[in-house]
Computed example of a mutant assay.
Amino acid sequence: MRLASLSLRYKILDFLYKVYPEAVEELTIIHVFYEYHTVDDIKKHLNYLVDKGYIEQKEICLRLGTKKTTNIYKITSKGIDLMQGIIQDKAIPIPEDE
């Protein structure tokens, strides 16, 4: 896997870590990173981070009484442990200067 892809995982985690304890809507995350990454790549890495347990995903209704939904994401305690260097994952390289 390309280093740019691996660093996107870190960037998403770092973003969610900085806004913790808030959850962030999927579209907001896409807007933050779409200048340098495709929407499909961003969604793929969000799904990876959810599958690994580093972030949680929750589907919410956009408006009461409608069927329109969106996903919100929040870093988990496991994700915080990764960002703080308590655990490591070779698939998510944390920069040395962090």
Rank of each mutant, 00 (worst) to 15 (best):
H45I: 00
T66Q: 02
E96M: 02
G65N: 13
T38F: 04
V50A: 06
K18R: 15
L64M: 06
Y36F: 05
Y17E: 03
V19I: 08
E35A: 00
Y34W: 09
I29C: 04
H31T: 13
A91C: 00
Y34K: 14
Y34F: 09
L8A: 05
T38Y: 05
Y10I: 10
A23M: 12
K68C: 00
L82A: 03
T69C: 05
E22K: 14
L27G: 11
E96R: 12
L6G: 06
T66S: 08
D97N: 09
T69Y: 01
K43W: 05
G65M: 10
M1A: 13
I42M: 04
N47D: 14
K90T: 06
V19G: 05
E98F: 07
I75L: 07
Y17I: 04
L6K: 14
A23E: 15
T28I: 12
V39H: 11
S77G: 06
S7F: 09
L62P: 04
E98R: 13
H37Y: 14
L8N: 09
H31D: 15
K43V: 10
Q84M: 12
Y36H: 12
F33G: 09
E56F: 02
H37T: 07
T69V: 13
Y36S: 12
E26L: 10
G65W: 06
K90F: 03
M83I: 01
I94T: 15
A4S: 13
L13Y: 07
I29T: 06
P95G: 11
D97C: 00
A4M: 02
N71D: 13
M83K: 00
K74E: 03
L49M: 00
L62K: 10
D51W: 07
L13E: 10
L82K: 00
F15A: 06
G85D: 11
Y17D: 06
L46Y: 09
L16Q: 13
Q88H: 12
Y34H: 14
Y48K: 15
D14Q: 13
Y10E: 08
A91F: 07
L3R: 15
T38A: 00
K58D: 08
Y20K: 02
E22D: 06
K43I: 12
I75F: 06
G85N: 08
G79R: 00
D81N: 14
K68A: 06
V19E: 06
T76M: 04
H31E: 15
C61I: 04
M83N: 01
A4C: 08
L3E: 06
L16H: 14
I29A: 03
H31Y: 12
I12T: 11
I60M: 02
D89P: 01
K43G: 06
D81P: 01
E59F: 03
D41E: 08
D40M: 07
V24D: 10
D89K: 01
P95F: 08
I86L: 04
Y54A: 02
E35L: 00
L82E: 02
Y34P: 01
Y20W: 14
I80W: 03
Q84W: 04
D51M: 14
H45P: 01
M1Y: 14
L64P: 04
Y54C: 03
K18I: 07
S77H: 08
L46D: 07
K74M: 03
Q84I: 08
A4Q: 13
Y48L: 04
D40L: 10
K58L: 14
